[in-house]
């Protein structure tokens, strides 16, 4: 297992390299630069700035410098917010994004899983219909519609919750963003769980378990649920990576200082280093969570062996 994990880490390096390379050149080829503002900068200042950030060098050389710094864990300074380094920005934003995203995923897995199981057990009953309806709505209505409406109803209308803001992660401030981030995931998990549970309940080994007179709790809990969990486990990996690296919409609507917002602002302002920093973090998270999922998979399913 350890050897497998190590091997996976090693194969992740080329992927990361490709991601970094592609991203680096794509953002550089895009027209415009970080110092193209509405009013033109003084040419001398501009030249100075570009020299400081090595932007005057040929692109390949810049790339070499970036890679070298990256290997030392240095993500560089932010171009548009010179008082911060990229690492500092990430250090400030990432915990916020992880906290909201992690909570949303956890709730989505628990609630969505339970909803899916109930729907599958009472198939075609009212509970099933309700879950399917909810899942359809949840995966159809985009977050950027749900979030403002949520705000409208619960913050502005009923006045139960603050309109937005982080407030050091106070409970009341968390509710809105976590729910809005969770809803589409909840819908996907519930739907996935329902269909895989229905499939699991139709397998031959469930029929065997029933034929052996096992109690319904043992049939469902020990046999069906465990098989049905597998697709949900593989979904959870990429979802975790996506959720914990920040949601632009939720962070914007609820004015939360996560990294999703930094990323979009940086892309709009051509803040190369910040964009690259966000890309690296996202890629690392994706690789990491996929690894965790694969390892979790071996624990649930003995047929999967990595040796």
């Amino acid at each position: 297992m350890l050897r497998y994990a190590f091997w996976r880490m090693m194969t992740a390096v080329p992927t990361l390299f490709v991601v970094v390379t592609l991203s680096f050149f794509m953002i550089r080829i895009a027209p415009g630069g970080p110092f193209d503002q509405e009013r033109a900068l003084d040419p001398v200042i501009r030249a100075n700035l570009e020299r400081t950030y090595h932007l005057d060098l040929p692109l390949v050389q810049q790339y070499g410098i970036y890679l070298k710094n990256l290997l030392h864990g240095d993500l560089g300074p932010s171009f548009t917010m010179p008082e911060f380094s990229v690492a500092e920005l990430l250090h400030a934003g990432l915990p916020v994004s992880i906290r909201i995203g992690g909570l949303a995923l956890l709730l989505a897995l628990i609630l969505g899983g339970a909803m899916g199981v109930i729907a599958a057990l009472y198939r075609d009953g009212w509970a099933d219909r309700a879950v399917v309806g909810f899942a359809t709505a949840g995966s159809t209505i985009p977050t950027f519609v749900v979030a403002p409406l949520f705000q409208l109803v619960f913050a502005l209308g009923l006045n139960w919750l603050p309109v937005g803001g982080w407030n050091d992660g106070a409970f009341h401030n968390l509710i809105g963003p976590v729910i809005c981030l969770m809803l589409p995931q909840l819908a996907v998990v519930a739907r996935l769980m329902r269909s895989s549970m229905i499939e699991a309940l139709h397998t031959h080994h469930i029929r065997t378990a029933r034929a052996m007179g096992l109690s319904e709790a043992a049939v469902v809990g020990r046999h069906a649920l465990r098989s049905a969990l597998l697709p949900v486990v593989s979904y959870a990996g990429p979802a975790a990576a996506a959720l914990m690296t920040g949601s632009v919409v939720v962070e914007t609507v609820f004015s939360i200082p996560g990294i999703g917002r930094y990323f979009v602002d940086a892309a709009l302002n051509r803040d190369y280093t910040v964009v690259m920093g966000a890309v690296v973090v996202l890629a690392v998270f994706t690789i990491l969570f996929n690894l965790i999922v694969d390892i979790a998979y071996t624990l649930v399913d003995p047929r999967v062996r990595y040796d």
Binding site: H204, H205, A209, A211, S227, V300, D301, P302
Partner: peptide
């Protein structure tokens, strides 16, 4: 009353010993 089935490949739960 016990029953055995046609499909030996799938009649056992793959996840348990």
């Amino acid at each position: 009353i016990s029953m055995i089935f046609q499909e030996p490949m799938t009649s056992l739960d793959p996840l348990y010993r």
